[in-house]
């Protein structure tokens, strides 16, 4: 079932890489194309080691004459940055766990179980994917206010785990389960398994690629959430990282650029490292998630 994408021979043009010139052209094209994808992140990382007065130096430079880690220390002393880091991590993990469960259940039901109104209900759920958060943010704030949940992590967890990002997950899971051979389930039925048994013992284990894809996309969606924490949270010890990044301002509202860049680097680099290590697995997950529309 599983094939390594990179190891697969090129189907589009076998034997196309004969001439060296062609290969050089390919590499040149890729390197030029890659520049805008890579340089901003690199610049952010190197600039976080610059003193403030070098960040705006023109022409901009990559490396500092007098590198300093002062901005990193400042990030932790200025606000409870370690706590905010923990908040982001735990919220993203909880959201991911709930989303996996909810989307695997709903995706399976929409794909495999027949019940009246299934298509209509699926469309209702899909609408959740299309409603921009700007439409719902004000009413949601009112609702959470009524429930006494403003300035808690509940809105961030519940809305993310059950509304838009979860709907995309349900969609991905449904597409995956639709493509799964029905014979596997029939065999399980003959063995006496019920729906729950079939779902949990047969289908969920087979859905690992789709579940990985869902996990990664959901984690990133929660990790990068910006508008919602800004609206719901007011206590610095409850903040999440993207929100905390905008708080590095001096008492008069002036941006502390180098501290911001240092904090931004700290939020980006771990995710990037995890991605670099797991990227082969990641791309394969998406590739095998059955996301074919």
């Amino acid at each position: 079932m599983r094939t390594d994408l990179a190891a697969r021979p090129a189907p589009a043009a076998p034997g196309r890489f004969g001439p060296v010139a062609r290969r050089v052209a390919l590499y040149t094209a890729l390197i030029v194309l890659a520049a805008p994808f890579v340089i901003p992140t690199l610049w952010m990382i190197t600039s976080s080691f610059k003193p403030l007065n070098e960040i705006f130096a023109s022409p901009p430079s990559f490396f500092s004459d007098a590198p300093t880690t002062a901005a990193y220390a400042e990030a932790f002393s200025f606000q409870p940055f370690a706590r905010q880091y923990f908040n982001s991590v735990y919220i993203a993990l909880v959201v991911t766990a709930i989303t996996l469960l909810v989307s695997a259940l709903a995706g399976y039901a929409f794909a495999r179980i027949r019940f009246p109104g299934r298509n209509l209900l699926f469309i209702v759920v899909l609408v959740g994917l299309l409603v921009p958060s700007e439409v719902t943010i004000v009413p949601l704030f009112q609702m959470f206010k009524q429930a006494g949940l403003v300035n808690t992590h509940w809105p961030l967890i519940l809305v993310t785990a059950l509304a838009a990002p979860c709907v995309l997950a349900t969609f991905i899971m449904r597409q995956f389960f639709i493509a799964l051979p029905v014979e596997l389930e029939e065999a399980a039925r003959l063995d006496g398994l019920g729906r729950f048994g079939i779902w949990w013992r047969i289908c969920v284990p087979l859905a690992k690629p789709a579940l990985s894809a869902v996990a990664i996309l959901t984690f990133l969606a929660s990790w990068n959430l910006y508008l919602e924490p800004t609206v719901y949270l007011t206590s610095p010890e409850l903040f999440t990282l993207p929100q905390a990044l905008t708080r590095f301002t001096d008492p008069y509202g002036g941006e502390m650029w180098n501290t911001q860049l240092a904090a931004a680097t700290m939020t980006v680099v771990p995710v990037l490292v995890v991605f670099l290590i797991a990227q082969r697995h990641f791309v394969e997950s998406l590739a095998h998630s059955g996301l074919k529309g």
Partner: peptide, 15 residues
Amino acid sequence: FIAPQLIGVLVFVVV
């Protein structure tokens, strides 16, 4: 099976 997802969409999107 679809209840958690459906309720989530109803409460956090439709309402």
